[in-house]
Computed example of a mutant assay.
Amino acid sequence: MEAVVPAFIAALLVQAGDRSPWLVAILADRYGRPFTVAFAALLAHAGGNAIAATGAVLIAPLLTPNAKQLLLALALIFAAMGALWRLKAPDRLERWRLGALLTPLLGIFVLALGDTTQFFTLALGVRGPSPWFAFGGACAGIFVVHLAAALMGELSWRQLPIRGFRIGLGLIALLAGAVVGAGALRLI
């Protein structure tokens, strides 16, 4: 149960500055069905995070406590690098004519496969008694961000200070990753 809150917070922070809520806002405007689009995005992310949680189930018994801590440090450092990298606009999926459920489901799944949230699900999942708590926390955080993006729409979402948020998040995650990594390597 201890992985629920950290996974929720990690997903909330990482997703707020990511491309997938931007795409959710675009698709919610296009289809006029924000709850359907947000739910489809949740299902898309849940698929990727389920893969990460399954991976955590498989590798957790093989890792030492220091290796688990080092995996978390790597997740933080990769999150920092992703946040400090320039955010590129997502493909608007204008040629996709699959409807308000399938277009965001497939589009977000492809966009988010292998994203930072899944790495956090894996890293937090190997540390606790059950990776499925990390999965649940991450999915809850993802849904909060995507529902907000869908309800706001693209114009309002783009007016948020995402760039400054990403820089701040990146610097904090980089510092946290360095501290956790140094602890894992017994340097501090």
Results as ranks from 00 to 15, higher is better:
A40Y: 03
A40I: 02
A41V: 07
A41R: 00
L42T: 03
L42S: 00
L43D: 01
A44H: 02
A44R: 02
A44L: 04
A46Q: 11
A46I: 10
G47C: 00
G47L: 09
G48P: 01
G48N: 14
G48L: 12
G48K: 02
A50K: 08
I51Y: 05
A53I: 08
A56R: 03
V57S: 07
L58D: 05
I59T: 11
A60N: 10
P61A: 08
L62M: 15
L62W: 12
T64F: 13
T64G: 14
T64M: 12
N66E: 15
N66M: 15
A67W: 14
L70R: 06
L71K: 05
L71Y: 02
L72F: 09
A73I: 00
A73K: 01
A73M: 00
L74G: 09
L74D: 05
A75S: 04
L76F: 11
I77M: 05
I77V: 15
F78S: 03
F78I: 05
F78A: 06
A79E: 00
A79R: 00
A79T: 01
A80L: 03
A80H: 00
M81Q: 10
G82T: 09
G82E: 11
A83L: 02
L84M: 14
L84S: 03
W85Y: 11
W85F: 11
W85S: 13
W85G: 05
R86A: 10
R86T: 14
A89G: 07
P90T: 13
D91R: 12
L93E: 13
L93W: 08
L93Q: 11
L93P: 09
L93Y: 05
R95A: 11
L98G: 10
G99K: 11
A100E: 13
A100Q: 04
A100Y: 07
L102A: 14
T103R: 10
T103V: 10
L106E: 03
G107K: 04
G107F: 04
I108W: 02
V110H: 11
L111N: 08
G114L: 14
G114A: 14
G114Y: 13
G114N: 14
G114H: 13
Q118I: 04
Q118Y: 06
